[in-house]
Structures are given as C-alpha cells and as structure tokens.
Amino acid sequence: MMDKLIFGRYIPGDSLIHRLDPRTKLLGAIWFIIIIFLANNWISYVAMVAFVLAAVKLTQINPKFFINGVKPLIWLILFTVVLQILFTSGQTIWFRFGPVVISEEGLLNGVFIFLRFVLIIFMSTILTLTTMPLSLTDAIEFLLRPFAAIKLPVHEIALMLSIALRFVPTLMDETEKIMNAQRARGIDFGEGNIYEQMKAIVPLLIPLFVSSFNRAEELATAMEARGYKGGEGRTKYRQLAWSGRDTAVMVTFALLSVLLFVLRT
C-alpha cells in the first residue's frame, strides 16, 4: 500500500537540495507556483522548464520518481488541456468542425497549461522527495509563527501535524490488517456496484475510527504522564539552521522572478 504512494514520500539523500533548509524549499515551492502564472510566452516557459530540470538534476534522484508523480494526475491534466484546445477562440483557425474550433492560440494555450501542471507537480515533488516530513512541519511552524499575533495556535497546529505524520504509517498498517481480517470473514473490497463498494467500506471504517479514538486517548495519557502541559515554557530539540546555500537559492528565485517579468509580453 505504501509503495504506491509517491506523493509525500521522502527519499533520503545527500544532494545540495537535500541539505537546504526546509524553509527555503517550502518558500521556494510556493513562490514557484505563484510565478509560473507570470509566464505567458514561449521564451518564458523555456526558462521555467530549464530551471525545474536543473533543480531535478541537482536532487540526484532518479527522474522516474518525478514522472511517477505526474502519472496519477495525467487524466486530469489531459482533460484540462483538451478543453483549452477546443474552447479557446482565436484568430488563426486551423480546423473547424461544427462548433468545434481548433485555433493556433488554443493549441498554444493547451501546451502552456500542460507545462504549467507538470512543472508545478515536479516542483512540489522535489520538495516532498528531498525533505523529511518532520522538517517540513518544522518549516510550517516557523512560517506560521507571525500569525500567533492574531491568536493562531501555532504550537498546537505544529504538534498535530507532526503527530498526524508520525501516525500515517501506523494507521496504514492497521488499515491493511483490518482489511485482511474483514476479507477473511468474507467481505469483498472494491467489487460490485458503487452502493456495494461503499457498504463494504463500513466494516473497515468503523473499527479504524474506534481504534483511532483509543489510540488518541492512550497517546494523550502518555503525553501527560511525560509532563506535557501545552506549548508554554517548552524548549525545542530540533532546530533549523539557515546557511549561505539557502540565501543563494533565494537569490536565484529572485533573479528568476525578475527574468520572468522581463520576458513577459
């Protein structure tokens, strides 16, 4: 079950990108998603593709992982691309069949949308493949910290995130165990019509919920017994360290943004 999930998986390594501060990577990925919407012509897309491919190369991770990241979304992407091609009106018309019009602008738009999707997925895959989920929560906590001023419970959010991440594999194992136990009692998962399939989920879902409640209670007791009384007065074991590399990456991102503004038409 775990093997199929490429999304959110971490691949240990020691590349330049691996060693970056998680805050840099998170900010970079978010910033990239914003600036890709600035690109609106061939030359700017070429620049973006070159940038992403360079980043992929720097991770030293087999490009297959990135392709796999796109695969589950490929139908959604193609669907959007086809819609764009069919329903963009333009001046240079190449093909007309009844209400269906394919124009040069439409085709171009389709290709751009495709690139935009793929680049965004590549970029977020770089983030998840090279950053431990744990460091990612640290980064989120750090970036949320200013919002504590408006009463956002930053410590609680970070704690919930890290506990949630820590329990993902445990709950996956349990799901599989319950599924097998229910199969042994004659329940077919993923068979029959939608109604039957939904009904088969119930004997999986309810035990999973109940056991999560029990887990939560035991975990809360164990936390309390170890002196947990909320975020106040706590010190932190993990610390993020900003280095020269991170500044360099930030500068690169700034340059890329400027370049995009210049290339934009």
Binding site: P133, S162, I163, L165, A222, M223, K229, T235, R238
Partner: peptide, 23 residues
C-alpha cells in the same frame, strides 16, 4: 500509542522539551 516523536531521538527529547531543558 505512546510514541509521540517522529523519530527515536525526538521521542526521547519530548519529555525534556516539556520541562524546558536548554537544547
């Protein structure tokens, strides 16, 4: 159900963090 931290060392540190021990 009593493993709070995401890694072994984080879990061991959890109680110390609660007490506010310097890093």
């Amino acid at each position: 159900n009593q493993f709070v931290g995401s890694t072994v060392q984080d879990d061991v540190a959890f109680g110390l963090e609660n007490l506010g021990i310097p890093r």
